[in-house]
Nucleic acid binder design. Sequence first.
DNA 1: CGTGTAATTGAATGCAGTCAAACGAAGTGG
DNA 2: CCACTTCGTTTGACTGCATTCAATTACACG
Lengths: 230, 230
Amino acid sequence: MINTLFPYKRYSFINDSVLESLSEEEIKYIEENTTVLKLKKGQVIFHEDTTPMGLYMIKEGKVKKYAMGLDGKEHIFYLAKEGEIIGHHELMSKEPYSSSSACLTDVVVNLIPKQVFFTILKNNHDMKDKLLKSVAHEFGVFISNSRILAQHNVRERSAISIIKLKEFFGVGIDEGFRISRKDHSNIVGTSVESLVRVLHDFKEEGVINIMENSIFITNMQKLVKICNLI
Amino acid sequence: MINTLFPYKRYSFINDSVLESLSEEEIKYIEENTTVLKLKKGQVIFHEDTTPMGLYMIKEGKVKKYAMGLDGKEHIFYLAKEGEIIGHHELMSKEPYSSSSACLTDVVVNLIPKQVFFTILKNNHDMKDKLLKSVAHEFGVFISNSRILAQHNVRERSAISIIKLKEFFGVGIDEGFRISRKDHSNIVGTSVESLVRVLHDFKEEGVINIMENSIFITNMQKLVKICNLI
DNA sequence: CGTGTAATTGAATGCAGTCAAACGAAGTGG
DNA sequence: CCACTTCGTTTGACTGCATTCAATTACACG
């Protein structure tokens, strides 16, 4: 709802929580069987191609989901934050992780062992429905992302990323967000240098401002126009 | 299982059927409430941004799922064939279609009205599980596709597409498959001209052959190498 | 204060897209 | 049956966006 000009929902990283359907009892059961992990910025939560141990609930911090490229370059396709769960796709499809997850900030996660997860899922059909709905929704978001990657140039993708990141970091008006150029360029799907050049242009054009490495949007309307969406 | 050198499963279009869990009774119920549609090559099954009416079961033929780009160019991200269902994501997420579907060949589909689908889903938890598993699996495939698009060049993506298409069309050794350059280029994510040039190169290098517009793989090992995967 | 990492800027290369035109196949109507 | 049209495919030439390599500047941290 940040901006009615931007087709927000379909392009957003944001996902509804599927954990609302849990009863008091189930929450208690989960809490008793959960391991709390405190992770530092940069640490990997799980690695691509490994076997899922359970489900991760993010309690604090921001997380990136990415796939490793040939040259060691990361392809970041999803950002998750407090309240979201990660690793549920692979748990459900009973396949190895198709991607890796790592911490963008210091993070606190709860690891729910897979037996616990499946026990709850077995009885809680409401949660099953929510999961189904959630995954199906993410699918639509993913299609949008994929299309953006295929059909927009670096300048447009960068503009889109800035709006999505502002929303993701949940910053208000007159607030900026901070992300490394490397992570940012891996979200946009370009090189660090190309991103830097585009950011430079945006600054010159008066659509953003960069202070202490934080990005501030100064002209949202113009930025949305640059996205060239719809 | 076409070729052990190619990391087949994770990149394939192929998806398990979720319809196996249906009982005799349920199949009868579906058949009584189903509309059979006969569609010509090129016809659209459903349009992006419209409201789902139901679920489509493909009885005969091949179907492309795609999203429209700015310039009217299609971005094809999934191919489906006999036995598969399409439109289930949007039905489950209760959102408008996030993509369009059209016929690559003449097609026969069964349209199962959404009430019928939901009635069955309500009682058949096994099918719900299978759907969940299916969508979660497709998600992994999708991540792979997205990564390929982001990190491989046109030559590599073309090679990958040829192997996937051979598998999709289910042709044996010494058999070719036929697809228009336009559709093919929209799968690869490039222009028609660029694809043609790459195909020309592949032919000269002896990895494929083109006869009567059908593509034959003549040196799979070399083709896999060109993919530059893993 | 020095050292390593991140960010920025410059220069050069090349991949792939666009535009334009030729060619081939298939279908239409006179 | 042939001229005509239309559509799909192919090839050529040109252009430009974005990557890569290289060098410099800014910044964080011990």
